[in-house]
Each structure stands twice: as structure tokens, then as C-alpha cells.
Design a protein around this nucleic acid. Structure first.
Lengths: 207, 207
DNA sequence: CGTCTTTGTGACTTAGTAATCACTTACTTT
DNA sequence: AAAGTAAGTGATTACTAAGTCACAAAGACG
């Protein structure tokens, strides 16, 4: 197999992480053979080990990339909200963007895999670190008070679970409790969530 | 190895599921050898296959048990709230009980493993089904409006992530955003969450 | 005490898979 | 074109782990 054109280490690394996201998303760290990732990229399996050292290291690199992409989406959303956007506007914009991001089930599932792998100390440390970055960014970008951010995060986590179960595809009363708008994308939930956060925030500012 | 005393199939099944919860919690479906579970129970590995058929089936049984335990805790908490408890009182009682339940990291991590394994269709169906039972119970036991339950669930999901990362052990500003009371148990968060839910509910009832 | 049912096991098969190593092939530079 | 460097692979090792099967031993019961 030498149909592959040669590209730089860094490029290849990026390609591999993209593929790894898709594969790890389904099987998790232990359920995904490195072979499968290599095959998807069209590169030999030993090369992955040369580039990443260990399967776990590749997993960690993938976790990093996952959170990085999320923060990037938040950054864009915050910028799109405009200069004179209120704190609530910014949270709203980021919430909607996150809802759209969840359409990429690979990214979402990869995030769940990261949480699930927190039984491993090394991975837990990485996940904490990534979460630190994410929360810090949201805080500084929105300027919203802690309580509002917490609530916004809480709804985000609910959205994760809704998305991972593909609840939007379930047409049942109970499903609508978790995800008010069935059959549609989760974005609507984000809007609803930010609406609440806004009220919380208004209260906090009155004090 | 015949130190084991013989007990009924059903008893043994229960023992195995307990051990499986602990093991699967760390390694997930694919990262956990059936051997490890068998060893913990003090029973031979082939016997597990005789009792459960497949590793995946054992995993599914464990998922079932995990949610069952959670609902049981909610049931007790709802009963403990007393006859003339308000809807908010009941949600509060269940929230606090859930916070305490999360001290059992095995149960919590097992729950995350269940979500993470939703890439598998069969497991996803099971998880949906368990979630249906859970949400339905909370709804009927509390009688609270949908929006209040949704918010209560959202904070529950946030608590999950806080617990899985062991954030209560992290003494940093950003950690306090996700988990206001650092160094202490997550219960305080539950109380805070239900406080919010109560307000939401009050609003809904004014309409 | 003998036999029947149920719980349980030792030994094996089969297949996959993380990691390594010696080696090759393409591209770059002088 | 020769020499050097960087990207990439075939073949193999050493091990793990799911699932099977024929068989054993405990208790129940007349």
C-alpha cells in the first residue's frame, strides 16, 4: 500500500486525529483498534505509533483536539454576537453554536468517551485541564456571573445526554421533558436554556 | 478453586452484577475483561457466560441495575419528604439523595459508561428505556411541571460531570463555577439547583 | 444410599491487537 | 548524481481475552 502521497508529520498528525475522533467516538479508548484509525487515514499502523507513541497518547491528543474545537466554536460565536452584545446575548450565541456543534455526533460522543475514561487518572487530569480552559474562556468571553454560567453549563450537559441518546428522534412525551422540541435540532433547547440563564443573571445584577 | 459456597443462580447473578458495576465503571464495556469480574466474585469465568450469555448482555444487565438503583434512591427520597411535601420539597429531597448517591463513584462512572456506549444501537435503546423509566418516575413522584424537571435534570447532569472529574477535590476558582462548594460533597449543589427549580416552578404556576 | 438436578470448573480454541524493528522509498540539498 | 533526511511499511512478537465443551461436585429427595 503506497498509494498515499507523502505529507508532513504535522499534517498527517492532524489527519490521524480527525479519524481517531470518529473511531474513538464509537468504541472509546479500549474498543478501538489502532488499525482501524490507520486504515481510515490510509497509512500503516506502525506509523501511528511512531507519531504518537502510545494508543493512550493518541487518545489524549484526540481529547485535546475535541475540547479545542469546542472552544474555537465558542470563540467564533462570541465574536459573532457583536461588540455591544449583552452578557446574555453572548451566552445565547455560544449556546446556539454549541447546539449546532452537537450535530457532529462524533465530537459529542468523543466528549462522552473522555468523561467515561476519567477512571484513568492521567486522562482525568487532562480532561480537568481542558475543562478549565473551556470554563475560563466562557467566563471571560461572556463576563456573566458564576451562577449564570453554571446554569448555562448545566443545560449544556443535558444537551449532551439528549444528543448521545439521539432523543430528538424519539417521539414520546417523556422525551419532550428532556428535549422540549422533538424532531428538531437541539438548538431550540439552547435558546430556552439561555433564556433561563438570562433571568438568573438579571436577578443577580439587581443585588 | 472450590472455596466458593454454592448459592442460587439468582443470588450469583446479583453478586456478579455488583462486581461488574465496579469493573465496568473503570474500563467500560471494552476495557474490562470478564475474567476480572469473575475473579472478584470468586467464580470461574465460563460460569459468567453460562449465566449471561455474552459480555455485552452482562453489560446491559449492569446498566439496568445502575438505573434501577438510582430510581430506588429517588423513590425512598420522595417517600422521606413526607405526605404534605410540596413539589419543590420532593425535588429537593431527591436531589440531595442523588448527591449522596454520587459518592459511590462506581455507580456514577458506570452511568457515564452507559452514555459512552450509546454508539452501539442496542445499548442506546436500553439506555433510552432506562431514562424513560427514570424521568417518568421523577415526574409522577414530584408532580412538578416539565420545565422544573428539565432544570432539575440539567443540574443532575452537571453534577455527574463534576463527580466524574472529582472536581470537589480541586481547589481552584474555575472549579467553583461548576461546583460552588469546593472540598465538600456535591449535595450542596443539589440544594442550590433545587432552589432554582423552585423559582422556575413558582413562575410557571403564576401563569 | 443412590440418583437426579443444579451449580460450577479445567482446559482449550480462536481471534484480535498493542507495540517493535529492521528496512524501504521518496524527496531535498549541494 | 551522490549523500542525506524525513516519511512510511512488512513482518513479527508476545499477549490478551471472548467464547466453548466436556466434565465434576454439591445438595435435594425418595
Amino acid at each position: 500500500m503506497k498509494a498515499t502521497t507523502r505529507i508532513s508529520k504535522e499534517e498527517r498528525r492532524r489527519e490521524i486525529i480527525e479519524a481517531a475522533t470518529r473511531e474513538f467516538a464509537v468504541g472509546g479508548l479500549h474498543g478501538t483498534p489502532v488499525d482501524a484509525i490507520a486504515k481510515q487515514v490510509g497509512v500503516s499502523q506502525p506509523y501511528l505509533f511512531q507519531l504518537f507513541g502510545t494508543k493512550k497518547d493518541l487518545f489524549i491528543a484526540t481529547v485535546h483536539r475535541t475540547f479545542e474545537r469546542t472552544v474555537a466554536v465558542f470563540r467564533t460565536a462570541a465574536a459573532d454576537a457583536g461588540e455591544d452584545a449583552s452578557q446574555a446575548d453572548i451566552l445565547m450565541s455560544m449556546g446556539v453554536a454549541y447546539g449546532n456543534l452537537l450535530d457532529d455526533r462524533s465530537l459529542l460522543r468523543m466528549q462522552m468517551q473522555a468523561y467515561a475514561a476519567c477512571g484513568d487518572e492521567e486522562i482525568r487530569d487532562v480532561v480537568r485541564d481542558e475543562m478549565l480552559r473551556l470554563v475560563s474562556f466562557v467566563q471571560s468571553a461572556s463576563g456573566a456571573p458564576e451562577a449564570a454560567i453554571r446554569e448555562w453549563l448545566a443545560y449544556g450537559m443535558l444537551m449532551n445526554v439528549v444528543a448521545v441518546m439521539d432523543l430528538t428522534k424519539v417521539d414520546a412525551d417523556w422525551a419532550r421533558i428532556m428535549c422540549p422540541v422533538n424532531g428538531t435540532e437541539i438548538v431550540a433547547m439552547a435558546i430556552d436554556a439561555v433564556g433561563k440563564a438570562e433571568r438568573t443573571q438579571a436577578k443577580a445584577q439587581k443585588k
